[in-house]
C-alpha cells in the first residue's frame, strides 16, 4: 500500500514513499522535516496546518498526498527565503505572536488572501481568516498586520 509520489514543495522536487492516503500535514512533518506546518485539530477546523496548493490556501490535514498531483506546494518554510515576505514582515512589525503555534497557518492563509484580494476590507479579512483559531487571541494584531502587508 506504499507508493512513491513525486511532489514539488517550496520550489524543490521531492519524492516520498508513503501510504497514498497520508495527509500532506504528516508527509511534511514526518517525512520531509518541514515542521512549520502545525497539527491543531486534524479535521480542518483550526487552520494551523494551512499551506498553499498553487496559490490557494488549503488545510493540509485534509489533503491526501495522492490528491496533490502536479500542483506546487508552498509551506511557511518556502514563503520567503529569509522571512522577508511582506506578510511575515508585517507580523514582525506588529509583534503579533504570543505562543506562536498557530501563526504559520495564519500567515499562509493571510498571504493567500492578499494574492487574490490586494486590499481586503475588515469584512473580507474576517471572513477569510475565520477558519484560523488563535487560542492566544492575537486577532487584533493579525488584522492590523494584514492591512499593513496590503499597503506594502
Amino acid at each position: 500500500m506504499m507508493a512513491k509520489i513525486n511532489l514539488q514543495i517550496n520550489g524543490k522536487k521531492q519524492t516520498v514513499d508513503v501510504d497514498p492516503n497520508t495527509p500532506m500535514l504528516w508527509v511534511l512533518r514526518d517525512h520531509l522535516n518541514l515542521v512549520g506546518t502545525k497539527y491543531g485539530c486534524g479535521i480542518a477546523q483550526c487552520g494551523a496546518c494551512t499551506i498553499h496548493l498553487g496559490d490557494v490556501a488549503v488545510r493540509s490535514c485534509q489533503l491526501p498526498v495522492s490528491a496533490v498531483g502536479d500542483q506546487a506546494i508552498t509551506t511557511i518554510e518556502g514563503l520567503s527565503v529569509n522571512g522577508d515576505h511582506p506578510v511575515q514582515q508585517a507580523w514582525l512589525e506588529h509583534d503579533v505572536a504570543q505562543c506562536g503555534y498557530c501563526q504559520a497557518g495564519q500567515i499562509m492563509n493571510a498571504s493567500a488572501l492578499l494574492k487574490r484580494t490586494a486590499n481586503p476590507d475588515d469584512k473580507e479579512i474576517e471572513s477569510a481568516m475565520n477558519g484560523n483559531i488563535c487560542r492566544c487571541a492575537t486577532y487584533m494584531r493579525i488584522k492590523a498586520a494584514i492591512k499593513s502587508a496590503a499597503q506594502s
Binding site: 518541514l34 515542521v35 512549520g36 506546518t37 502545525k38 497539527y39 509551506t75 511557511i76 518554510e77 514563503l79 520567503s80 529569509n82 522571512g83 511575515q88 507580523w91 514582525l92 509583534d95 505572536a97 506562536g100 503555534y101 501563526q103 504559520a104 500567515i107
Partner: peptide, 14 residues
C-alpha cells in the same frame, strides 16, 4: 523569537 515564529522554525516539542 519573532523571526523564528514567522518563518516556521521548529520551536515546539511537537
Amino acid at each position: 523569537e519573532g523571526l523564528n515564529i514567522v518563518t516556521g522554525k521548529p520551536l515546539f516539542t511537537l
